[in-house]
Design a protein around this nucleic acid. Structure first.
Length: 313
DNA sequence: ATTATTTGACCGCC
DNA sequence: GGCGGTCAAATAAT
């Protein structure tokens, strides 16, 4: 709120650097783990590391994108939340805001390491399951505007389609990713945990049969992250999907939630060129998961997945 | 007592 | 006018 532009710039810069450095450290750990599967890395699983790495990149990119998009990262009024702006104090009275980054992910769990608070649920027209609305737990304390919408997929109720809107501006890594069925006594970040036991019943009830997996994805809308990269990564992505069940796509039109379930495969990659509508995201196509690209390529000597510990299937 | 979730009302946009 | 997203009172959980 009160931060002046230069100050904020410096802060963000540090944060980006911090995230990247952290990501690099994690990648190193992962490398070691992959080379020496039997050495005990403090009971950290490769998947755990991957999730953390992805998250680091996502956070860093989110911060960067902020500047790219508006040219002013700090120019928002205090009363904004998610992609909406509250106008009055009256209930239900708000004005929509159209320029928050959005991206989507498909995962078997709704856990993503951030603390979310549910603030609504809605029946959606052509959807079998209701859509749940979450906002950052730190919304008020830290003016964090991140929100997400989670919806169980029609055809594959095991999976959740999550739309993330806006990035976290809070420092809020507070929960272990909580891979289903596993526990990491060593891992646990700092702050508040106790009250955060919100794993909605939906998830709990399906814990058993799930394969561990989780995807966090990045958003890099359009242009800024060079389209060249995007193309490469995209091609890599397709190769990747054979063993990577959870996917991410960037957001396009407004139609995806209702319909997309029927054909998981195709829709997952469709980056709705259709766009027409909502400027919810000012961008279309390109972008995407450098993250996944990183996993896959980037060095035969760095990451070797030939006998990967990931057993997605 | 405090914090989180549920739920119906309400509003903006299409 | 309908749909989807948010608010906030009521309720539940801790």
């Amino acid at each position: 709120m009160g931060t002046s532009p230069p100050e904020r710039l410096s802060t963000d810069r540090k944060r980006v650097v911090g995230e990247l450095v952290h990501g690099r450290d994690l990648a190193n750990q992962l490398q070691i783990l992959l080379r020496e599967p039997f050495s005990d890395q403090g009971s950290v699983s490769a998947e755990d590391l991957v999730v953390k790495i992805l998250r680091s990149f996502t956070e860093a990119l989110s911060v960067l994108r902020c500047y790219d998009q508006s040219g002013d990262a700090g120019g928002e009024s205090p009363a904004e939340s998610g992609n909406y702006k509250v106008l009055k104090n009256r209930r239900g009275c708000y004005k929509r805001r159209k320029n928050s980054e959005t991206w989507t992910a498909v995962s078997s769990t709704i856990e993503d390491g951030h603390a979310w608070r549910k603030y609504g649920q809605k029946e959606i027209l052509n959807a079998k399951f209701p859509r749940s609305y979450y906002r950052c737990t730190r919304k008020h304390e830290q003016s964090c505007r991140a929100t997400k919408q989670v919806q169980r997929m029609k055809e594959n109720p095991i999976m959740y389609h999550t739309t993330y809107i806006g990035h976290h501006t809070c420092r809020d890594i507070l929960k272990a990713p909580q891979f289903i069925g596993s526990s990491y006594p060593g891992y646990d970040s700092n702050n508040m945990v106790g009250s955060e036991s919100k794993i909605p019943e939906e998830v709990q009830e399906m814990k058993p049969e799930l394969i561990k997996e989780e995807t966090v994805v990045s958003d890099l809308t359009s242009d800024n992250v060079s389209s060249m990269d995007s193309i490469n990564l995209w091609s890599g992505l397709e190769a990747l999907d054979s063993f990577m069940p959870a996917m991410v796509t960037q957001r396009g039109g407004s139609d995806d939630h209702g319909n997309q379930d029927q054909n998981v495969d195709s829709t997952m990659y469709s980056r709705n060129a259709t766009t027409t509508t909502t400027a919810t995201t000012a961008s279309h196509n390109t972008d995407m998961d450098f993250v996944l690209g990183c996993l896959d390529f980037e060095g035969d000597d760095q990451f070797q997945f030939d006998e990967s510990p990931f057993q997605f299937f």
